[in-house]
Design a binder for these strands. Structure first.
Length: 957
RNA sequence: GCCGUCUUAGCUCAGCGGUAGAGCACUCGCUUCACACGCGAUAGGUCAGAAGUUCAAAUCUUCUAGACGGCACCA
C-alpha cells in the first residue's frame, strides 16, 4: 500500500464529511437499539451575521468530542444546530447595504420591503457559520437545524408572550430605559457596557434662588449639563444643615422660563459635589425615583436620536446632545452662572455593539417581571443543584448572586427585524394581546386594530431555544397562523422547516439536554433566562450540566477583538495546521480557565497528527496477512460472549473477525506466557481507555488529550513499536496482527478529538468494517465514528507487566545515558553486563533481543556479580542491580567520575529528605502506616544505589 | 464599594495535602530501513511574598502585593 510520507490534512478533510452527513451518521435515527439511552446537546445559536471565531471553535470542539464519544458508546445522540436572528446586527447590516447601494433609508422603503430584504440578506450571508461548522467536522444533525425566526419557533414566541401577559408577568409601562441613539432602540441592562473616560468633566452650575433671606445661588454639580433643560426640581438632603431652610423654596432655572421647587430627599449625599442635586426625572433613573416621590413633572427634552427637542427651548432645539452641552456651558458662562469645571474620571454607559454613549431616557416599553421566574430558578439550584456548572466555582456563585439581584427585563426593541410584538391597539389605545390578529380582533369585538410596531429582544426567542428547537410551539401549535404577522407568507414558509412526526416527539425524547457548552459572557443573558423559561413553560430542566469555557485571549493577553486586531481566525488555523490538530489543541486547553493564544502549541498537535499517520503507515507497510482482533496465528478470533452474537445479520459461518467491548485479550491472566511487551501494551491501552473515559465524564478534556498523547507517542510509538520492530519487519503475522489491533483501538480512542485523520487511517486498516460497530449501528456503513469506543477493562490492567517492563526500560535508558555521556557513536555496539539474580535475571533474559536492539548492544551478559574491566561505565538500576558497559579505550575517567558523582548527588538529596521525615517521631507515629512503609522502602533502595555508585567511584581511582 | 479568579521552568500552561510535570524554546549527539512535523541524551523551578493549620502544604486558612473578570454606584 502506497502511503505518503507526511499527513496532508486537506485531503482527509475533504473526503469524509459529506459521506458522514449523507449516510445519516449524525442523526439519532442511525441508532437502531430501541433501548439505547439518549444523549443530547443543543448548540448555543451563533448569530446569522457572524462567522466562526475561536470561542465557537473551542465550544464546538467540546460539544463534538462529547457527542462523538457518546455516539460511539451506543447512545442515541443528537447535537442540534441552529442560528439566531440577531435583531440589531441584521437591522444595521441591511440598513447599511441600503444606504450604500441605493442611498435610501429603511423609512424610504417601508417596513414590509425592509423585512423582505432582511430575509434576502439572511439567505445570502447567513450561512457562513454553518458552512464553517462543516469544515470543523461538527457532527450535528443538519436536518434539525433551527432558526429563531422559523415558523414554529415564532409561534412559540407569540405563545409565550401571550401566556406571560395573561398571567401578569409581562407589562407595558413608562420607565427610564437605556436608549441607544444610533440604533434608535432600547437596550436591556445586559447590552450596556461601561467605559471609563479619564477626560470627563464635572460642571458646577449656579441656580439663582429668588426668595428673600436665602443665599443668592444654589450650586449643583453635573456631568451632563444639557439635561438641566429638563430639570424639574433641585434636591438636597433634609439633614443637611446648609440647605435645610431652602426646602420648599424654589429656584429660577436659567435658560428657561421655569421656576422649579427645591425638595428634600434622603437620596442626596451631602458629601458629594455640592450636596445639591439637579433633578431631571425624564433623563436619569435616580432622578426618576426622586420625581415619583415628590410628584415632579417628567419633562423630556430629547428626541430619539439624542438631539434636543422643542421642550428644550428654541435656542437648543435640534442640537445634538454634546453640542447642546457646549452651548449650555457657554450660556451659563455668559450669565456668570458657571462656578467651575473640575476634571473628573467618569464611567459612561455605552452600547455593547456600536459603543455609542447610551442615554437614559423615559420611555414606554414592554417588560418581563422576573421575580417569580427568578425564584423558580433559585429553587431549582437549591433543591436539585441544577444546573451543575463545570467548573462549579466560581460560576454557580455568580449565577445565583445575579439572580438574587435580578431586575425586570426590557423586551421591546424599536426595530423591524425580529418577532413583532403580538399586541394590537384600538383607536383609543386599548391593548389586545393575542397569538394572531384574528384572535386579537375577536377580543376587541371586531374593531379596527393596529399592531405594536416594536419587535422582541432577540434573547427573548433565544430564551425559548432549549424547547422551541424540539418543536414546542405552545398551545397554538397546529392552528392556522398564516395571518399571524405582517410578513409575507412566502417568506415564512421559505425559511420554515417542516417538523416531522419524529421531531415533534423530540421534546419528550431529548429534553432536558445533557449538557450546555457556552461562554461565561452569556450566563445571564441566555443561560439563566433559558433555565427560567424552560421551567415555566415545559416544567422541565433545560439541561443537567453547563460547561463554561474559558475565553481564548489574543497573544497580548486581551480578549480577541477586531478593534485590537489581536484576533486569530480558526479557518486560518485549519488551513495552516489542519482541523484535527486545531481541534485536539483546543481540547487540550479546555480547562475552563482563560488561555492565551499561541500558534506554536498547535504545532505540537500537527506533529502529533503526523506521528499517528506515520505510525499507521509503518504498521500497514508490514501488515501482509495480519488480522485485526486476531491474537493468535492461524486462529480467527471469535467474540468471547456478548457482542458478537448480539449482532444480527451475519450468518454464523461467515462471522467476521471481531472484537468484544473489552480490549483484545492477548494473553490469559493465569499463564502470562505472552511476550512482555504485548502484555504491557495491553495494560497501558486499558489504563488509558479507562482514564480517558473517566476524564471525559468529568469534562476534563485536557486530561483526556494528555493521556492519549502520551499513550500514543511514548508507550505505543517509542516503546511498543520499537520493541516489536524486528519481528514485524521480519513478517511475523502474529506480531503485526497484534500491533494493528492496538493501533486500531488507539484510533478509536482518538476519534472524537481527531475525526478526519482517524477515519482516513481506520478505513485503510485491513478488515475494518461495521463489524467493529456497537450493535446499535450494525447496519450502518463502515466508519470509525460508529465503532465502539473502548471502555477499558480493569482485568487487563497488569501491574506485574508494567513493573517488569519498567525494568527493561530502565536498563535501556541507563545504557543510552552512558552512551550519550561517553560520546559513543550510534554505530558502535557495546556489551551490557548486569549483576542480577532470580526473577530480575529471567525478565532481562527473556527480553534480551529487545534490550540489545534499543540499547545498540551486541551482548547482554547476565551474571551473579559484575566481572568487567576497570575501564567500564557503571550505573544502578531501580531495584538495586548494578549495570556496567565496558569501554576499553573509550572511557574518560574524569568524565565517568563526574557522571557518577552527579547521580550520587541527586540520590543523596532525596535520601536526606527521606531521613529528615523518617527521623521525625511525629511523622512515624501519625502518618498512615503505608506511607511510612513506602518511605522506608524507598530509603533502603536509595541507600543501596548510593553505596553501589560510591564503590564504582572508588574503583575508578 | 461588593463578589470572584489568577500569580508554578525562558514562553504557554497542567497538577490542587504525601518524592515538582508537559509542550515549545535552549544545550549535546544522530541521514538508526514509519516519521527531521523525527530519534536519543541532558540542563532548567526556595510553585508571587508573609503568617497559620497539619506528621506532611505548590495544593487548605488568613493577610499583603500585582494582573484580570463580574456586579453595583457614579449629581
Amino acid at each position: 500500500m502506497e502511503i505518503p510520507k507526511a499527513y496532508d490534512p486537506k485531503q482527509a478533510e475533504e473526503s469524509h464529511y459529506e459521506r458522514w452527513e449523507t449516510s445519516g451518521f449524525f442523526k439519532p435515527e442511525i441508532n437502531k437499539d430501541p433501548d439505547a439511552e439518549k444523549y443530547s446537546i443543543v448548540i448555543p445559536p451563533p448569530n446569522v451575521t457572524g462567522s466562526l471565531h475561536m470561542g465557537h471553535a473551542l465550544q464546538h470542539t467540546i460539544m463534538d468530542v462529547l457527542i462523538r464519544w457518546k455516539r460511539m458508546q451506543g447512545f442515541r445522540t443528537l447535537w442540534l444546530p441552529g442560528t439566531d436572528h440577531a435583531g440589531i446586527s441584521v437591522q444595521r447590516k441591511v440598513a447599511e447595504q441600503l444606504r450604500e447601494e441605493e442611498g435610501k433609508t429603511p423609512i424610504d422603503i417601508g417596513r414590509e420591503e425592509f423585512i423582505r430584504r432582511a430575509w434576502a440578506w439572511k439567505e445570502q450571508y447567513g450561512n457562513t457559520i454553518t458552512e464553517q461548522m462543516r469544515r470543523e467536522g461538527a457532527s450535528v444533525d443538519w436536518s434539525r437545524h433551527r432558526f429563531t425566526m422559523d415558523e414554529s419557533l415564532s409561534k412559540a414566541v407569540r405563545s409565550v408572550f401571550v401566556t406571560l401577559y395573561d398571567e401578569g408577568w409581562i407589562y407595558k409601562g413608562l420607565r427610564i430605559v437605556n436608549w441607544c441613539p444610533k440604533d434608535k432602540t432600547v437596550l436591556s441592562d445586559l447590552e450596556v457596557k461601561e467605559e471609563t473616560r479619564k477626560d470627563g468633566k464635572l460642571y458646577y452650575l449656579k441656580y439663582p434662588v429668588p426668595q428673600a433671606g436665602s443665599p443668592l445661588y444654589l450650586t449643583v454639580a453635573t456631568t451632563r449639563p444639557e439635561t438641566m433643560l429638563g430639570d424639574t426640581a433641585v434636591a438636597v438632603n433634609p439633614k443637611d444643615e446648609r440647605y435645610r431652610d431652602l426646602i420648599g423654596k424654589s429656584i429660577v432655572l436659567p435658560l428657561t422660563d421655569r421656576e422649579i421647587p427645591i425638595v428634600g430627599d434622603e437620596y442626596v449625599d451631602p458629601e458629594f459635589g455640592t450636596g445639591a442635586v439637579k433633578v431631571t426625572p425624564a433623563h436619569d433613573p435616580n432622578d426618576y425615583q426622586i420625581g415619583l416621590r415628590h410628584d415632579l413633572e417628567q419633562l423630556l427634552v430629547m428626541n430619539d436620536d439624542a438631539t434636543m427637542n422643542a421642550a428644550a427651548g428654541a435656542e437648543f432645539e435640534g442640537l445634538d446632545r454634546f453640542k447642546a452641552r457646549e452651548k449650555v456651558i457657554e450660556r451659563f458662562d455668559e450669565l456668570g452662572l458657571l462656578e467651575k469645571i473640575d476634571d473628573y474620571e467618569i464611567t459612561l454607559p455605552v452600547c455593547e455593539r456600536c459603543k455609542t454613549v447610551v442615554e437614559p431616557i423615559l420611555s414606554d416599553q414592554w417588560f418581563v417581571k422576573m421575580d417569580e421566574m427568578r425564584d423558580m430558578a433559585l429553587e431549582l439550584m437549591r433543591t436539585e443543584g441544577v444546573p451543575h456548572f463545570s467548573p462549579q466555582v466560581p460560576h454557580e456563585k455568580v449565577y445565583t448572586a445575579w439572580l438574587e439581584n435580578l431586575k425586570d427585563w426590557t423586551i421591546s426593541r424599536q426595530l423591524w427585524w425580529g418577532h413583532q410584538i403580538p399586541a394590537w391597539y384600538d383607536s383609543e389605545g386599548n391593548v389586545f394581546v393575542a397569538r394572531t390578529e384574528r384572535e386579537a380582533k375577536e377580543k376587541a369585538g371586531g374593531r379596527e386594530l393596529k399592531q405594536d410596531a416594536d419587535v422582541l429582544d432577540t434573547w427573548f426567542s433565544s430564551g425559548l431555544w432549549a424547547f422551541s428547537t424540539f418543536g414546542w410551539a405552545g398551545e397554538e401549535a397546529g392552528r392556522d397562523t398564516s395571518e399571524s404577522g405582517e410578513k409575507g407568507e412566502e417568506q415564512l414558509t421559505a425559511d420554515s422547516h417542516q417538523l416531522s412526526a419524529i421531531s415533534k416527539n423530540d421534546l419528550d425524547s431529548f429534553l432536558p439536554t445533557d449538557v450546555l457548552v457556552t461562554g461565561r459572557d452569556i450566563i445571564f443573558l441566555w443561560v439563566s433566562r433559558m433555565i427560567m423559561l424552560t421551567k415555566k413553560f415545559v416544567d422541565k430542566k433545560a439541561f443537567e450540566d453547563v460547561i463554561v469555557t474559558g475565553t481564548v485571549l489574543g497573544k497580548d493577553g486581551k480578549p480577541m477583538s477586531k478593534s485590537r486586531k489581536n484576533g486569530v481566525d480558526p479557518i486560518e488555523m485549519f488551513d495552516k495546521f489542519g482541523v484535527d490538530a486545531t481541534r485536539i489543541y483546543l481540547a487540550s486547553i479546555a480547562t475552563g480557565a482563560d488561555i492565551k493564544w499561541n500558534d506554536l502549541l498547535i504545532e505540537t498537535y500537527r506533529n502529533f497528527a503526523n506521528k499517528i499517520w506515520n505510525a499507521t503507515r509503518f504498521c500497514l507497510m508490514n501488515s501482509d496477512g495480519a488480522i485485526i482482533g486476531s491474537p493468535h496465528e492461524g486462529e480467527v478470533a471469535k467474540g468471547r460472549g456478548g457482542s458478537a452474537s448480539a449482532v444480527e445479520g451475519f450468518p454464523a459461518e461467515e462471522e467476521p473477525p471481531r472484537q468484544e467491548k473489552a480490549l483484545t485479550p492477548l494473553h490469559s491472566k493465569e499463564g502470562s506466557y505472552e511476550p512482555l511487551p504485548d502484555r504491557w501494551i495491553v495494560s497501558r491501552l486499558n489504563v488509558t481507555a479507562l482514564n480517558v473515559n473517566k476524564a471525559l465524564s468529568r469534562y476534563e478534556f485536557h486530561t483526556a488529550v494528555s493521556l492519549l498523547y502520551h499513550f500514543f507517542w511514548d508507550d505505543f510509538c517509542d516503546w511498543y513499536i520499537e520493541l516489536k520492530k524486528d519481528e514485524i519487519t521480519a513478517g511475523d503475522v502474529v506480531s503485526s496482527s497484534r500491533i494493528l489491533s492496538i493501533l486500531e483501538q488507539a484510533l478509536r480512542l482518538l476519534h472524537p478529538f481527531m475525526p478526519y485523520l482517524t477515519e482516513e487511517l481506520w478505513l485503510k486498516l485491513p478488515g475494518t468494517s461495521n463489524a467493529f460497530h456497537n450493535a446499535a449501528y450494525a447496519d450502518a456503513g463502515a466508519t470509525i465514528m460508529l465503532a465502539d469506543f473502548p471502555a477499558g477493562d480493569p482485568t487487563f490492567v497488569d501491574e506485574q507487566a508494567e513493573a517488569e517492563m519498567q525494568l527493561v526500560i530502565d536498563t535501556i535508558k541507563r545504557v543510552r545515558n552512558i552512551r550519550s555521556e561517553m560520546n559513543i557513536k550510534p554505530s558502535d555496539r557495546v556489551s551490557i553486563h548486569v549483576a542480577a539474580a532470580g526473577e530480575m535475571r529471567s525478565i532481562l533474559a527473556a527480553n534480551e533481543a529487545q534490550i540489545k536492539k534499543l540499547a545498540r548492544a551486541d551482548r547482554l551478559v547476565l551474571a551473579d556479580s559484575l566481572d568487567v574491566p576497570k575501564a567500564s561505565a557503571k550505573a544502578v538500576l531501580s531495584g538495586g542491580a548494578e549495570i556496567a558497559v565496558p569501554l576499553e579505550g573509550l572511557i574518560d575517567f574524569d568524565k565517568e567520575r563526574e557522571r557518577l558523582q552527579n547521580q550520587i548527588a541527586k540520590l543523596d538529596t532525596e535520601l536526606q529528605r527521606l531521613n529528615g521525615q523518617l527521623s521525625n517521631a511525629n511523622f512515624v507515629e501519625r502518618a498512615p502506616v503505608e506511607k511510612v512503609q513506602e518511605l522506608r522502602g524507598r530509603k533502603e533502595e536509595i541507600t543501596g544505589q548510593i553505596a553501589a555508585l560510591r564503590s564504582n567511584v572508588a574503583a575508578l581511582a
